[in-house]
Simulated scan of single mutants.
Amino acid sequence: MHPDVEGMIAAVEKDAVGFEQYFSQIATPEGLWQLIIGMSGECDRLLYESDTFSKAYQRALQEGFAQGAQGYARDLVNSLRIWTVKPEEINVPVDLWYGGLDTSTVHSPDFGATLASRLPNASHTIDPEAGGSILWTRAWDILAKLKSHVSGI
């Protein structure tokens, strides 16, 4: 795990409320955009920095932070703290998608292998040609897989 991530986990374990308050004061859409670009490999930056995607993504970040960063900070704390449910007890289908070219230090260091091994009904997809932007580059496949779990659709 990257030292920055380890540090955030330690800070949340020590004082989750304080970490959330601090992070909600410093997080901005511009800062998050720079973080994403800075951690992204070449294949992701090609997408992120393309004119159409860049404008749409940055607009989404602006709208997402329009009422402040509290929601983002809470989501971050929830993802970094010890889960209240054991993954082994999650019995619904879970689809994990990872890009083999993902260079982000905040994404799963083993591309979800450990999590997939703990979830009883997980499907684990690693696209060796995709990066961290797999949610955008494989959106139709991901949505089709999610839809396949819902009966009657």
Results as ranks from 00 to 15, higher is better:
110 D>L: 14
92 V>G: 03
128 P>S: 12
84 T>V: 05
119 L>G: 04
89 E>I: 06
119 L>K: 02
93 P>W: 11
107 H>K: 00
100 G>D: 05
97 W>S: 00
89 E>S: 14
107 H>C: 10
84 T>H: 13
125 T>M: 03
120 P>T: 10
119 L>A: 01
85 V>K: 14
99 G>D: 03
128 P>M: 12
86 K>T: 13
122 A>D: 12
105 T>L: 14
119 L>N: 03
106 V>H: 00
85 V>L: 10
92 V>T: 10
116 A>M: 05
107 H>W: 06
92 V>Q: 05
115 L>A: 15
102 D>Q: 04
119 L>S: 04
94 V>H: 03
104 S>F: 01
88 E>Y: 11
106 V>F: 04
100 G>K: 10
94 V>F: 07
93 P>H: 05
117 S>E: 11
114 T>A: 13
122 A>C: 13
127 D>T: 00
92 V>K: 02
101 L>F: 04
99 G>E: 04
116 A>G: 12
119 L>R: 01
94 V>K: 00
94 V>A: 05
103 T>W: 01
89 E>H: 15
97 W>N: 02
105 T>N: 05
112 G>P: 08
126 I>H: 00
95 D>Q: 10
96 L>N: 02
126 I>T: 10
101 L>I: 03
91 N>Q: 14
123 S>D: 10
114 T>C: 02
121 N>Y: 02
99 G>P: 11
91 N>G: 14
87 P>N: 08
102 D>T: 01
106 V>G: 01
109 P>K: 09
101 L>T: 05
121 N>G: 02
121 N>R: 15
113 A>Q: 15
98 Y>I: 00
124 H>F: 10
84 T>W: 03
100 G>Y: 06
88 E>R: 14
95 D>A: 13
113 A>Y: 04
95 D>S: 13
92 V>R: 06
105 T>G: 13
115 L>V: 14
101 L>R: 14
108 S>W: 02
106 V>N: 02
124 H>R: 08
92 V>I: 14
94 V>M: 04
84 T>S: 13
114 T>K: 14
125 T>L: 03
84 T>M: 11
85 V>C: 02
101 L>H: 03
102 D>M: 01
114 T>F: 07
100 G>V: 06
88 E>A: 15
100 G>M: 05
124 H>Y: 08
85 V>G: 04
97 W>M: 02
104 S>G: 08
101 L>W: 07
95 D>K: 00
93 P>I: 10
109 P>S: 11
101 L>G: 04
116 A>P: 14
123 S>C: 04
115 L>R: 09
107 H>G: 09
103 T>M: 03
121 N>A: 15
115 L>I: 13
87 P>R: 10
122 A>N: 12
93 P>V: 04
86 K>P: 02
91 N>E: 11
85 V>E: 08
126 I>L: 05
107 H>S: 12
115 L>D: 09
126 I>E: 03
90 I>Y: 07
105 T>R: 13
116 A>V: 11
116 A>I: 09
105 T>W: 06
113 A>D: 09
107 H>D: 07
99 G>T: 09
102 D>L: 05
110 D>W: 11
92 V>W: 03
104 S>C: 05
114 T>P: 02
88 E>I: 13
